[in-house]
């Protein structure tokens, strides 16, 4: 009788231990993510500052419809997304495929080089690119020496070229990062599959599209979701590379929301409304991606 009771309490103890182990992490996520998300929604229905917040309903959301800068920031963010993410991911898969060749020498050196940009902080590389593409920066110096340009071109002062610089910088920083996922994924593909394809007469290009890409599909979907998530939250690059300029033409959503909160006249209510829109975008795109990933498998 006693031993039975003790045995049950042991199981109960284990169950309690299990819950106790995940309690700190769970509570922290609840307080640091879920609760602030609810607060953000409540804030988005309010206006005013500090203790004088008034509930105004959805007028903050209505204001978004007439806010040209926020609309510009949405367009910019999606432009970066649509152009940068596919180029980067295709380049990353291609590099992973090339580096997965067992005849290739110096594999480790190439991999380290391509992966190296990940070692720099986002602010660091944004500043490096800002200097490289400055009017008296290295890129202009080279172009002048090659007689392509007569005087330095103001890359960051023109809205189109500034956007291109941001996209190039993003590709530079994140291609190696994504390549690491694909290299890990490729290691799960048997080399004999490629050998068989070679015997069947498939060339490199065909092997790439018919074998590598389909077999890496789960990895591709995951990196796609991560890239979308990251791009929708771009902040460091916009702040430090272009400062959002010229005239807000490269500003991202996060950058504009930050400015609304902490620059000029703080407006937490309106900022929260915009932040909530970002949340909805992230959630919807992630769900679409997961659905696409599900149905084709």
């Amino acid at each position: 009788m006693i031993s039975k009771k003790k045995g049950m309490s042991l199981v109960a103890k284990q169950r309690a231990a299990g819950w106790a182990f995940l309690a700190p992490a769970t509570i922290l996520i609840a307080i640091m993510s879920f609760y602030p998300m609810i607060r953000a929604f409540i804030l988005s229905l309010q206006t005013g500052t500090g203790a004088n917040m008034k509930i105004v309903g959805f007028s903050n959301y209505a204001r978004i419809l007439s806010d040209k800068v926020f609309q510009q920031s949405i367009i910019n963010t999606f432009l970066y997304l649509i152009i940068q993410v596919p180029i980067m991911l295709i380049l990353a898969i291609l590099l992973a495929q090339l580096l997965n060749n067992k005849d290739l020498r110096l594999k480790g050196v190439f991999r380290t080089c391509v992966f190296l940009p990940c070692a720099t902080s986002l602010v660091s590389y944004a500043l490096i690119f800002r200097c490289l593409f400055a009017q008296d920066g290295l890129i202009n110096n080279v172009l002048i020496k090659l007689h392509i340009l007569n005087t330095g071109y103001n890359f960051l002062g023109n809205s189109t070229s500034a956007k291109i610089v941001i996209i190039l910088a993003l590709i530079w920083r994140w291609t190696g990062y994504n390549m690491v996922f694909y290299l890990a994924g490729l290691q799960n593909i048997e080399y004999s599959v490629y050998e068989a394809a070679k015997i069947d007469g498939a060339n490199g290009w065909k092997t790439f599209w018919k074998i590598t890409v389909p077999l890496l599909k789960p990895t591709i979907i995951m990196t796609f979701i991560m890239s979308i998530n990251g791009t929708l939250q771009l902040f460091d690059e916009s702040v430090n590379l272009t400062k959002g300029g010229p005239a807000n033409s490269t500003i991202t959503m996060s950058h504009y929301i930050y400015n609304t909160c902490f620059m000029n006249v703080p407006n937490f209510g309106y900022a929260s409304a915009m932040a909530f829109i970002v949340f909805i975008m992230v959630a919807v795109l992630a769900l679409i991606n997961m659905k696409v990933g599900d149905t084709r498998d």
Binding site: S33, N229, Q233, F235, S254, F268, S272, F276
Partner: peptide
């Protein structure tokens, strides 16, 4: 929580 963007929690957390 992976879908919660940093900018959305930034203001409430700051408060």
């Amino acid at each position: 929580a992976m879908m919660v963007p940093q900018v959305a929690t930034m203001v409430p957390l700051f408060q």
